[in-house]
Amino acid sequence: MTTKQLSLQHIIKAPIGQLEKAPVLFMFHGYGSDENDLFSFAGELPEELFIISVKAPYPLQPYGNAWYAINFDADQNKFSNNEQAIESRDKIANFIDEALEYYPIDAKNISLLGFSQGTILSYAVALSHPEKIKNLIALSGYVNYDIIADNFKQNDFSKLSVYASHGSQDQVIPIDWARKAPELLSELNIEHKYSEFPVGHSVAPQNFMELKEWLRTRL
């Protein structure tokens, strides 16, 4: 089901069985993809979940979308447009509030699942607004401190749990960048699990099985 009534375009999968307030999983795709990408996981995830897969706001040519622009200089160094990223962070936080008003979902049982650029945004949302988020699944991404709210380390993270994973052969986002996330999570006393798999910029089958079991035990 596709709907445009809220501020970000998205598709949904309602839970099996009638729940007055269902646990909800928001999905945020990577650069150059769209809301259908991660939604392919939906049928394999716990059936009690209300799943909302969100389309990033910036269209790319010839196809796909982005949460923020990535620009290259003459030496092919990459630069992220952090202003756009912060706008997207705030759009996601606002969209979550809209969805809570619009859909029969539980404000106390909100999970985020991101891939790549979607993970970078999901980290920013969860660390900026931990009061909103119960679980974060961070696939093939990293923490960009420049797009997290100021003084975020003073937040209360006691109800947040994080599952992070990365491919050890990832040529898009270096593994060293990903390894800094569990260091930060430990510093903030955030309950977390971090795993690496011998793949590139993708989600290995055993990775998916692990994140699925991690999420199932936390709903």
Score class of each variant (00 low, 15 high):
residue 111 S to E: 11
residue 205 P to S: 08
residue 114 G to W: 02
residue 146 D to E: 13
residue 160 L to K: 00
residue 148 I to W: 05
residue 147 I to E: 00
residue 137 I to P: 04
residue 133 I to H: 05
residue 170 D to C: 12
residue 106 D to K: 03
residue 150 D to H: 10
residue 204 A to Y: 02
residue 120 I to L: 13
residue 173 I to F: 07
residue 106 D to T: 12
residue 132 K to Y: 04
residue 160 L to M: 04
residue 205 P to E: 04
residue 172 V to D: 05
residue 196 E to A: 12
residue 168 S to A: 09
residue 183 E to N: 08
residue 158 S to T: 13
residue 158 S to R: 05
residue 200 G to Q: 10
residue 105 I to M: 09
residue 120 I to M: 14
residue 187 E to G: 09
residue 153 K to H: 05
residue 117 Q to W: 15
residue 146 D to Y: 03
residue 186 S to T: 14
residue 161 S to G: 04
residue 138 A to E: 06
residue 152 F to D: 01
residue 139 L to P: 01
residue 120 I to G: 01
residue 154 Q to H: 05
residue 151 N to V: 06
residue 202 S to C: 10
residue 156 D to M: 12
residue 148 I to G: 11
residue 167 G to I: 10
residue 116 S to T: 07
residue 161 S to F: 00
residue 201 H to D: 05
residue 113 L to H: 12
residue 123 Y to K: 05
residue 124 A to T: 00
residue 104 P to A: 09
residue 190 I to D: 00
residue 158 S to Q: 07
residue 112 L to Q: 02
residue 191 E to N: 11
residue 189 N to D: 10
residue 127 L to Y: 02
residue 155 N to C: 08
residue 159 K to G: 02
residue 200 G to K: 06
residue 139 L to Y: 12
residue 125 V to N: 08
residue 105 I to F: 00
residue 199 V to T: 15
residue 178 A to V: 10
residue 143 V to G: 01
residue 194 Y to V: 13
residue 152 F to A: 07
residue 170 D to E: 07
residue 121 L to M: 14
residue 167 G to H: 07
residue 128 S to Q: 03
residue 136 L to M: 13
residue 203 V to N: 08
residue 123 Y to R: 05
residue 131 E to T: 03
residue 154 Q to Y: 02
residue 138 A to P: 01
residue 104 P to D: 00
residue 152 F to H: 02
residue 111 S to A: 14
residue 126 A to I: 04
residue 171 Q to R: 12
residue 125 V to Q: 03
residue 166 H to W: 15
residue 198 P to N: 13
residue 120 I to P: 01
residue 142 Y to T: 14
residue 191 E to D: 06
residue 174 P to H: 14
residue 201 H to Y: 09
residue 151 N to T: 13
residue 148 I to M: 11
residue 157 F to P: 00
residue 187 E to S: 12
residue 163 Y to K: 07
residue 142 Y to F: 15
residue 134 K to R: 14
residue 110 I to S: 00
residue 184 L to K: 09
residue 140 S to C: 13
residue 182 P to E: 06
residue 190 I to N: 00
residue 134 K to C: 00
residue 164 A to K: 11
residue 136 L to S: 11
